[in-house]
Design a protein around this nucleic acid. Structure first.
Lengths: 216, 216
DNA sequence: ATAAAAATAGTACAATTGTACTAGAGCCCT
DNA sequence: AGGGCTCTAGTACAATTGTACTATTTTTAT
């Protein structure tokens, strides 16, 4: 019976360390290493490739999406399990297209995580209810021609900077002053973000910021 | 050397179970039980009182604040450690007044958690940088007469209902239609919430909803 | 070197949100 | 029976956000 190497990246130390403990208690997990963010995980992987990388979708330094993109590009043999707090299906679909191997909510049972680890290595994918629901929804919505297609919005640095300030409850005017920009410029960045993200008001922007780990 | 009983409440199963593992690895922790939310924790405590209760601030069914209030009222001997993702000092101050014994961010080191557990039982309080910062800030701000005082907003059921819909990106008009209320009524509830919470725009409302665990 | 993307700035108008009040009906508590 | 809170609804106006465009400069990538 083969034993596997598992790496995990999550910015919440307490959760991460607790997860390391848990992972070590799994019978067929041989070695566990942990990283505080995507960048650190990539460094670890560069030296030695694990069988499975568990990645938090919400991370401040390098978010889950970008981290996975890099891993898949540079180390296609590493299987990836995404952990997320929000069952935001917009990300899931995009990341499935990218080639991620499993998605789990942070409120799944440890048993399911264990199953998922073995499944991604042995069967290349772990199929659960969460994924099934997203796939079904995607099919029905594409049929009715509702949405163009979910894509994880990739914001520019400037856009992220402005989004952070929006989340600090600054108005367009205040942001313009703070960054020495015209109000119109800030307004344009705002609109562009809303288009990319696919929302049409401030609430959508703030929710995205939380769900993508850009704030808090 | 005395050993302690520790209970933990958190809605994220994976985190919670991993924490149970971690807690069991602490030398002076004798027994660990876990609950999915505040209500469940209170039921556990009714039958048998732990030395320490670790409570997540963000929980959907019964939030951390309310849970602690009940515990303190009914079982004043149980020491309480609050875990929170957001270092939102507004809650911290209010909960210190309530009589909570420690505050930890979810990205503290396991060592610190262990220290905190022993400290709350033996010295009745665990004083860390997070708490120190909040206290200092409170003093300076009270001196300059800036803010009335931070209090955890206690929203009514109707208000929470409307806040949830706001977070679903509905406008005042749409909420009015959905709940069969006048737009003006919805607008008033909105304003009242903003007053209670102490914010002055939608961003503040949505952030509160996240930080209080009302959404996601 | 050239095309694409990002950042800058503008105008104009519509829609929604934010502010500041008043006011009655119903409920709970003491 | 009165006080306080919640829920309801209103008016009126100010401020901000949202929509829909055009356009120039700078940076980045192939």
């Amino acid at each position: 019976m083969k034993k596997y190497k598992v790496y995990i990246a999550d910015d919440h130390t307490l959760f991460r360390k607790a997860m390391v403990n848990l992972l070590r208690s799994f019978h067929r997990v041989q070695e566990v290493k942990d990283a505080e963010n995507g960048k650190e995980l990539l460094t670890l992987i560069k030296y030695e490739q694990p069988d499975v990388a568990i990645v938090d979708l919400q991370m401040p330094v390098m978010d889950g999406a970008e981290t996975c993109e890099q891993i898949i590009k540079k180390h296609p043999d590493v299987k990836i399990i995404i952990l997320t707090m929000h069952d935001s299906n917009k990300y899931i679909l995009h990341m499935m297209e990218m080639g991620v191997h499993a998605f789990l909510l942070k409120n799944t049972e440890p048993d399911e995580l264990e199953k998922a680890i073995y499944a991604v290595v042995e069967k290349d994918f772990y199929h659960n209810d969460l994924v099934a629901a997203v796939l079904r929804k995607n099919v029905t919505e594409r049929k009715s021609g509702q949405r163009p297609q979910f894509r994880l919005a990739e914001l520019t640095e400037r856009e992220k900077e402005i989004l952070v300030l929006i989340c600090r409850e600054l108005t367009i005017r205040e942001i313009g002053q703070k960054l020495s920009l015209s109000e119109n410029t800030v307004r344009n960045h705002r609109v562009n973000m809303m288009d990319k993200i696919g929302v049409n008001n401030t609430v959508g922007l703030v929710k995205f910021a939380y769900e993508a780990g850009i704030v808090s």
